[in-house]
């Protein structure tokens, strides 16, 4: 589904990613872990198509197509979704209006008609129940005055509505208490299928108790320095990141 080959990227003159190789197949869950400043968030932003990052070398191939030249919205139309570490507050646009616009613009890009209002409502009901979201919440301005937990739940709600092929969860666990974490993880697990894939980007092992990865990768200094099974996450939790740094001689 996603193949990243020798990816180098950065902001202006600063190089952040220094040769990432990663392959994610349908049905898999990958966790990317690493200390602060290792390039985790840059990697997710680059896959999602944030313009301020410059790709200097390498390729991002999604379903056989090099997506490097595609705009963020075109990537979304192809089925790439990123849950933001810091969801942006947009006063004046309600959650419902936002998601409705996102769905209909995605349908438009695929040559489909707008989703009938009735179906939209039904879908919204179904997915908000899944994430245990109060309906009143949906008419509020997007992320404005939301608590950390509400923001993250809202991200996963949008993911549930858009049904992406590839979901990248960027530090979704940060700012969540244990109940919210459980709801979010439960939502993600219910949405998982053999046809889609998830990349969980996290600093801590905590979320991985709920969303169990098939593979764990350790990102350090812009490179994946170690890959392994879910046991690797436990090891990192126990020992921290220092031993990896020593191992790779950084």
């Amino acid at each position: 589904m996603l193949k990243i080959e020798n990816l180098h990227a950065g902001v202006e003159d600063k190089s952040i990613l220094k040769g990432i190789n990663l392959e994610v197949k349908a049905g898999e869950v990958h966790a990317i872990m690493g200390p602060n400043g290792s390039g985790k968030s840059t990697l997710s932003s680059v896959i999602a198509g944030k313009e301020e990052y410059e790709v200097s070398e390498g390729h991002i191939i999604f379903e056989g197509e090099d997506i490097e030249e595609l705009e963020a919205d075109e990537r979304a139309h192809k089925g790439i979704f990123m849950s933001f570490q810091y969801p942006v507050e947009i006063p004046g646009v309600s959650v419902t209006n936002f998601i409705k616009t996102a769905i209909n613009e995605t349908r438009k890009a695929k040559g489909l008609e707008d989703m009938p209002a009735k179906d939209m409502l039904k879908l919204i009901r179904e997915k908000s129940d899944l994430l245990e979201i109060d309906r009143k919440f949906l008419s509020r301005s997007l992320n404005e005055g939301f608590s950390g937990g509400e923001k993250k739940r809202n991200e996963i709600f949008q993911m549930a509505m858009l049904e992406p092929k590839l979901a990248i969860l960027d530090e979704t666990d940060s700012g969540l208490d244990i109940d919210a974490l459980r709801i979010v993880a439960n939502g993600v697990n219910k949405l998982k299928s053999k046809n889609n894939a998830v990349i969980v980007i996290t600093h801590y092992q905590r979320l991985l108790d709920y969303i169990v990865p098939d593979y764990v990768h350790v990102l350090h200094n812009g490179k994946i320095v170690k890959s392994g099974s879910k046991e690797l996450a436990h090891e990192l939790e126990e020992k921290g990141y220092d031993w990896i740094k020593e191992e790779v001689g950084a």
């Binding site: 313009e51 996102a102 613009e105």
Partner: peptide, 30 residues
């Protein structure tokens, strides 16, 4: 217009022009 809000909207599949329009509408909404 807030660039981070634009990217957020675009990452959800809303094209640039529509994302800008939505932000401008929201700005007038009060």
């Amino acid at each position: 217009l807030d660039e981070s809000a634009l990217f957020y909207m675009r990452s959800r599949g809303i094209p640039e022009k529509e994302a800008k329009a939505l932000l401008m509408y929201a700005f007038s909404n009060n």
